[in-house]
Design a protein around this nucleic acid. Structure first.
Length: 562
RNA sequence: GUCCGGUUCGUCUAGGGGUUAGGACACCGCCCUUUCACGGCGGCAACACGGGUUCAAAUCCCGUACCGGAUACCA
């Protein structure tokens, strides 16, 4: 029998992290077993369900790339079938009409109400004391015919079962093991409200049967519901599916992770919008409450599928760690680390489309960055000074041919590769990395303070360095020709040196010695002026990447000083 | 209240009778260095508690504590 699993969220809000993880586990299990992953929107609570929420859930699943295999089922559309099932159970004597008046709403919130009622009962409550439970069929029919409102309740542990050895429901959970619950602990649950509205447990069972679900993988908060559902399966004469309950994801205080209390951190789309890579977040989510047992953290989707097993799911809840008032720790450290890890180490050509999308949305994208009929990633030989440190003798004399044209596809690819080393999210490409793609970038006040204001001499030195660069590397004619996309760093027919790391290094070092200052002072001052921030790759790479024109222009700029 | 589940570094976790209790993140230190949130090396840090069983318990059993879930004419 092929495995059929489903993710069944109720559209009463955004896609919660815990729900997203449940979806992931269902998906992984389906893929692992060659089964089908289905989606069912449990929108029977009309008052709370919204279309917007459904869309947000679908968005989230799409972002995580958890594609479902068949048409989405909307539970509300099956209400008629649910009612029919309840009626059938009524006919068969497995359920009964309860004519008790619906309880009036109280001021207490629902949870407190429930607890309060339970406390008053002091555990003395007999779950079978409903006066309508054994009403004669005749009287029940008559009262119904007379228009008296009633709910339909399941008869739990009826007389026909009395020959059983033990009056309990039991099932073996794939995660939590053998679960047993005495009938005495389970109330005669309502299947159909007095207004004819089918209730959750009935709807779930009917739909799972109809969708031929073989494995129900869901949050541990449904563990006790399972007993009720099994009762319904039994009444219906259907073999229940296998159940696998997942541990919950808790807030740092070990309480429930909720939007009310914790806000956006709980919503999956927050991570999409914050520049997380779906692959990274999926990886992180997979490791909350499940592990392979290996000492390994980074798993591709394919690996997750290959390794996934319900045996590896934990029984204890996991804490999703974050600190509310600390911007650096707004979400789980490990999630942030994992995202950074993906950005820094994933194959460049897989990252590129995401960077493109980010730059586009920040209006920093230029069509020239797209490859022009070339292979997506061309291998560009390194010109980085660091790569030649071992053997000075072999430093190439002229690397001009290796330097991609500023603003070209090759330049773009190389730049992304250069700057991604210190980035955490895709957003960084348009914020921290903005200066690489635009003249319109901001200056971090802290960087200005630390690297410029402290050294007033730089006011003079930096423009002077610009002059030096211009005489050593500049190409006035070419600059005039194309002000935006400059030509390579070698001027035609001139003997000027190419603007490469090695050459730049020589010039800057000489300049530093002249000024009798430290290299760091010049470099960091230049970094701040050129990129607006205090952190980044090697300054020599930055110079080269920006090109001589932009370097000269920015070194002369006074914007940051005021 | 009752029922069910859980408890290994701050967090995610490995380990399921004999381990110097392992890894990752975070944190701290050192190194590299022109900066840094890159990289390298290192450090801090845990078996909830009490009883058993056993030659031997983080591991098995019982109890306690604490945490979580459920308990609805919500889903």
């Amino acid at each position: 029998m092929t495995v059929r699993v489903r993710f069944a969220p109720s559209p009463t809000g955004y896609l919660h992290l815990g729900a997203a993880r449940a979806a992931l586990f269902n998906y992984l299990y389906a893929r692992k077993t060659g089964g089908r992953f289905l989606l069912r929107i449990e929108d029977t609570d009309l008052a709370r369900s919204t279309e917007e929420s459904t869309r947000s859930i679908l968005d989230g699943l799409q972002w995580l790339e958890l594609g479902h295999d068949e048409e989405i089922v909307f539970q509300s559309e099956n209400a008629e079938k649910h009612r029919a099932t309840a009626k059938r159970l009524l006919e068969e004597g497995k359920a009964y009409r309860d004519f008790t008046q619906k309880a009036a709403p109280s001021d207490l919130n629902v949870k407190d109400q429930i607890r309060e009622r339970a406390r008053q009962n002091q555990g003395e409550k007999n779950m079978r004391d409903n006066e309508y439970r054994d009403l004669s069929k005749q009287e029940s029919d008559d009262r119904a015919a007379a228009g008296e409102p009633f709910a339909i309740r399941l008869k739990v542990g009826t007389a026909s079962d009395s020959d059983r050895v033990s009056l309990k429901t039991s099932f073996t959970d794939a995660v939590y093991g053998l679960q047993e619950r005495a009938y005495a602990e389970t109330e005669d649950l309502v299947l159909l409200r007095s207004d004819g509205h089918p209730l959750y447990n009935l709807a779930v069972v009917c739909d799972d049967i109809e969708m031929q679900i073989t494995h129900v993988i869901r949050g541990q908060d449904h563990l006790t519901n399972t007993h009720k559902q099994i009762l319904i399966y039994e009444a219906l004469g259907v073999t229940p599916p296998t159940f696998a309950h997942l541990p919950l994801i808790l807030a740092p205080n070990k309480g429930k992770l909720s939007k009310r209390k914790h806000g956006e951190v709980v919503s999956l789309t927050t991570y999409r919008d914050a520049g997380f890579l779906a692959a990274a977040f999926r990886n992180f989510l997979a490791l909350l409450g499940w592990s392979t047992g290996e000492e390994k953290e980074i798993y591709s989707l394919e690996e997750l599928i290959e390794k996934f097993s319900l045996d590896g799911v934990h029984r204890s809840n996991a804490v999703f760690n974050f600190t509310e008032n600390d911007p650096r720790k707004w979400t789980d450290d490990k999630a942030q680390w994992m995202n950074a890890e993906y950005i820094r180490t994933m194959p460049l050509d897989e990252l590129l489309p995401f960077v493109k999308a980010e730059l586009k949305s920040a209006k920093l994208w230029r069509e020239e960055y797209d490859p022009e009929g070339r292979a997506l990633t061309s291998t560009v030989p390194s010109t980085r000074a660091a790569d030649f440190q071992t053997d000075d003798e072999e430093r190439p004399e002229n690397l001009a041919f290796d330097i991609p044209e500023i603003g070209s596809h090759d330049w773009y690819v190389r730049t992304v590769d250069l700057i991604r080393q210190r980035f955490f999210t895709l957003k960084d490409f348009s914020s921290q990395g903005r200066a690489y793609f635009s003249e319109d970038y901001d200056f971090d006040p802290a960087a200005i303070d630390k690297n410029l204001t402290k050294f007033p001499d730089l006011r003079v030195w930096l423009p002077e360095l610009a002059d030096r660069f211009e005489t050593e590397f500049g190409d006035v004619e070419a600059a005039a020709d194309s002000p935006r996309v400059s030509s390579p760093h070698v001027s035609k027919g001139s003997s000027r040196k190419p603007f490469t790391e090695l050459n730049i290094e020589t010039v800057v070092k000489a300049f530093t010695e002249e000024k009798a200052t430290k290299l760091g002072v010049i470099m960091n001052g230049a970094r701040t002026l050129l990129t607006g921030v205090a952190v980044g790759p090697s300054m020599l790479s930055v110079f080269e990447t920006l090109g001589v024109e932009r370097t000269v222009m920015r070194l002369r700029s006074r914007v940051a000083w005021n």
